[in-house]
Design a protein around this nucleic acid. Structure first.
Length: 262
DNA sequence: ATGACCACATCTTGTGGA
C-alpha cells in the first residue's frame, strides 16, 4: 500500500503534473493540499478516470485538501474538531477499506503562521493544540493511522539548508518545535525519517532566488504513523523529480509503503 | 549581483504563500 502526500499549490494549475505523476508512480492513496478551489471546481472526473475515488474539502482561493484512493471510502470527515468557528479548509479524514483490512488517513494543511507577530501565528499554535487533542483520540482506536500533509514545520536543523536564515520563522522556532514534538511524542513515527536517516532531504524549495537549483530547501511535508502503521512501514521516498518539471509546485510528493499483509 | 516566484482575484495591483 503506497500512500503519498503532496501540496500541489493549486490543483487547477497543477492538474497536468498531477495526472502525469499519478500515471507514472501509481500510488494507492494520495493526500493533497492547497487545492485553492471549491469542491465543485475540483477536477474529479480526470482523477477518477485514472481509477481513483475522490474526497474533497475545498475552499475558494485558499487552502483546500483532498484524499484520493484506489480503495473505497468507508467514512469521510471534514474539518479538524475543536473550533466550530474555524472556516479554513485544512483537514480531511477518511477510513479506507484495503484488500487486507482498513486504515484511517488524514490530509493535513497546517497553518503557515507567518508573520509571527500577528494573530496568524497564534492560530497556527491553537491549530496544533487541536491536532494534538484529536490525535490523542484517534490513537485510542489503535488503528493503522496515517496523518499526512504539509505541516509547515521544520522538525530540526537537519531538515533545512540554512538553519540560521530560517530560525525565528513561524516554521522554525521554539514554540512550533515544541508543539510538533508533543504531537510526535503521543506515539507517532515520521515515516520518511524512519526510513531515511541521512540529513538534508527536502520536500519544498521556494520559487525565488534559485532555491531549487541550489538545493536550498526545507522538509515540511510529513507522514506521521500510529504504532500499528509504523509496524508495517516498508519504505519511504521523496519524488524530487517533479520539482524539475515544467510549471512545478514548490512542494514535491513524499510517500510511504505499508505492508498490509502483516 | 545578498537579487531572483507563483497563483488568484475579475485585475495592471494587492494578498498570501513559506
Amino acid at each position: 500500500m503506497k500512500i503519498a502526500t503532496w501540496n500541489v499549490n493549486s490543483i487547477k494549475a497543477r492538474l497536468p503534473n498531477v495526472l502525469k505523476w499519478l500515471t507514472q508512480t501509481t500510488p494507492d492513496i494520495v493526500c493533497l493540499q492547497e487545492l485553492k478551489c471549491i469542491d465543485e471546481a475540483f477536477p474529479a472526473s480526470e482523477i477518477e478516470d485514472l481509477g481513483y475515488n475522490v474526497a474533497v474539502h475545498g475552499q475558494k482561493t485558499y487552502n483546500g485538501v483532498a484524499i484520493i484512493s484506489r480503495y473505497p471510502f468507508d467514512d469521510i470527515t471534514s474539518g479538524l474538531p475543536g473550533d466550530d468557528d474555524d472556516e479554513q479548509a485544512r483537514y480531511l479524514e477518511a477510513v479506507i477499506s484495503g484488500e487486507h483490512g482498513s486504515l484511517r488517513v488524514a490530509s493535513i494543511y497546517l497553518p503557515n503562521g507567518n508573520p509571527v507577530e500577528t494573530p496568524k501565528y497564534q492560530y497556527k499554535l491553537d491549530w496544533m493544540d487541536r491536532l494534538v487533542r484529536h490525535t490523542e483520540e484517534l490513537l485510542g482506536y489503535e488503528e493503522i493511522l496515517v496523518l499526512a500533509g504539509d505541516y509547515n514545520v521544520i522538525p530540526g536543523e537537519e531538515d533545512v539548508h540554512d538553519p540560521q536564515g530560517w530560525w525565528g520563522d513561524a516554521l522554525y522556532r521554539p514554540e512550533t518545535a515544541e508543539k510538533f514534538r508533543t504531537l510526535c511524542n503521543l506515539g507517532l513515527t515520521s515515516g520518511f525519517k524512519a526510513c531515511n536517516p541521512q540529513a538534508h532531504q527536502y520536500s519544498f524549495w521556494d520559487y525565488q532566488a534559485g532555491a531549487w537549483q541550489k538545493d536550498n530547501g526545507i522538509l515540511i511535508d510529513h507522514l506521521l504513523l500510529s504504532p500499528q502503521a509504523a509496524d508495517r512501514l516498508q519504505g519511504s521516498e521523496i519524488d524530487r523529480f517533479t520539482r524539475g518539471w515544467e510549471k512545478p509546485s514548490d512542494h514535491v510528493p513524499v510517500w510511504i509503503r505499508l505492508n498490509m499483509n502483516k
